[in-house]
Amino acid sequence: MPLPFLTADRAFDASAEDIALPFDDHDDWRRPYRPGPWRVAAAAFLLLFASFILFAGMIIAFAGAVPGTAVCLGLALVVIACALRLLRVGAWVSRHGVRRVGFITTTTVPWDQVAAVRTVQQPVKWLGFPRTVQGQALIVVRRGGEAVPPLLTDSNADFLTRGEAFDRAADTVEAWGDEYRRD
């Protein structure tokens, strides 16, 4: 089963041409970078936990306790859904705008409402925890002045030890903004 949210398409292939918008169909929502090792490791841990819950549910089913089996199955499905949602978290771009997908909420800003997309130095959350560190963040400045949480930070689960990947992803999102933003 293909998982398109895990692929970065041709943007990071060594043989791909060095262009900012390498995608064939700009109407599809794309994440212009690969998920980071911390995010993938957390999702893998959740899927491993779900497999243990399913195994426990199978043992309970063989023991003949149907309500316990249903609880285990329901809990495993919730954990699997959380792992898949965790893999979708990040910044997504298309011809229509830029989208910040969080674990619970999603914010979409059309390109005609974007004044600028830029990288700034500011305190950022470390791996999404309340602790902040000084770092870089890719922010969207709206025309109306509404605050949008940072799209990417160099201390999130995708870029914690990958500064070069953060720079490449930020440049790619900025290129999408320059291409489709109306001044």
Rank of each mutant, 00 (worst) to 15 (best):
L3W: 12
F12G: 05
P22T: 04
F23Y: 15
F23Q: 14
D27T: 15
P32S: 05
R34M: 06
P35S: 01
P37Q: 01
P37D: 00
W38R: 09
A41L: 14
A44Y: 09
L47I: 03
I53M: 01
F55P: 02
F55N: 11
M58C: 06
L75W: 09
I80R: 06
I80D: 02
I80K: 13
C82Y: 10
C82K: 11
R85G: 10
R85S: 04
L86M: 12
L87P: 02
L87A: 00
R88N: 11
V93D: 06
S94E: 04
H96Y: 13
V101R: 14
V101W: 07
V101P: 05
G102L: 03
W111L: 02
W111H: 07
D112V: 06
V114A: 01
V114F: 09
A115N: 01
R118Y: 06
R118T: 09
T119F: 07
V120M: 08
Q122S: 09
P123I: 00
W126N: 15
L127M: 14
T132G: 04
R142F: 10
G144L: 08
E146L: 09
A147R: 13
V148M: 13
P150L: 07
L151N: 02
D154K: 00
N156I: 07
D158T: 13
F159V: 02
T161C: 09
F166S: 08
D171C: 00
E174W: 03
E174S: 08
G177I: 01
Y180W: 14
